[in-house]
């Protein structure tokens, strides 16, 4: 991608983002640019603000200062500072897909309808069109046998794969993953990571908060390290994991299972 038009084609661009919760600064002047097709992993200890950063991108948290653009479009407020009406905000949000730590599937809908709900009621797709798309996506995440099951009958790994299909169904510009494997039993982590890895190979744009270091190293194009709301290091995964610049990151990596190779 040529240097000149990066800001034109950036899937997400974040400038001067700051956010406090009751006097505690969770994000401090964060700058981040995610190019189309790029996978960015956000790493940091708990309380470093990484989930908040992710949740600001689709305005589930309102930042105090700064701007966020999704595919060139400002989210949350207009360029002149007017707050965005809810309908417009919803439209920009629809450009992002989010996968939550706790899955948050809708328990009153079966697997198929969890995936078709937003395409039908947000994008106005026909039922048939939405179901065709959902069928294809559920196949992609390996859940095609479970169309009629309700969420309470699924394992955590299965729930998360359905949640990924649900987010993909909106054909978003960028996928946001908020610790997608943290709530899973260890033996179920692999099946979810495999799905995400496939997506990265297919060229999906993704921003991900994770504690899975080996995985981050394998799939990322860019790794960002957040500490007390500040980005203190960013690099390609090879550099980040082998020759970190700061002591803080070195210590962090020592305390986590540092991957030997990608």
């Amino acid at each position: 991608m040529s240097e000149a038009n990066t800001s034109e084609t950036a899937a997400v661009s974040i400038h001067h983002l700051s956010k406090s919760f009751d006097d505690v600064e969770v994000l401090r002047d964060v700058e981040l640019e995610v190019k189309t097709g790029e996978v960015v992993t956000i790493i940091g200890s708990s309380g470093s603000g990484k989930s908040t950063l992710l949740r600001c991108i689709n305005w589930l948290e309102k930042p105090d200062r700064g701007s966020i653009h999704i595919a060139g479009q400002r989210i949350g407020v207009h360029e002149d500072g007017r707050p965005m009406p809810v309908r417009e905000l919803a439209k920009v949000r629809a450009q992002t897909g989010m996968v939550f730590q706790g899955f948050n599937l809708w328990p009153h809908l079966n697997v198929l309808h969890n995936v078709t709900e937003a395409p039908i009621h947000v994008q106005g797709k026909s039922k048939r069109e939405a179901e065709e798309l959902a069928t294809a996506l559920l196949e992609k995440v390996g859940m095609s046998q479970k169309h009629d099951s309700y969420p309470n009958t699924l394992s955590g790994g299965q729930k998360q794969r359905v949640a990924i299909a649900r987010a993909l169904a909106m054909q978003p510009e960028v996928m946001l993953f908020d610790e997608p494997t943290s709530a899973l039993d260890p033996e179920l982590v692999g099946e979810v990571l495999a799905v995400i890895k496939d997506l990265s190979a297919e060229g999906y744009t993704m921003v991900m908060v994770t504690h899975e270091m080996a995985f981050a190293r394998a799939v990322s194009d860019q790794v960002v390290f957040l500490e007390k709301g500040l980005i203190i290091e960013r690099a390609d995964p090879e550099t980040f994991f082998t020759t970190p610049k700061t002591d803080r990151v070195r210590k962090f990596l020592e305390n986590h299972d540092t991957p030997s190779s990608a």
Binding site: R87, V92, R93, M98, G102, N104
Partner: peptide, 21 residues
Amino acid sequence: REQSEAAMATGMTPWVTFRRI
């Protein structure tokens, strides 16, 4: 609250979230 957050994240307006979720 997570249930409605998941709905908002897919781009549902508060009204659609209320009605459908």
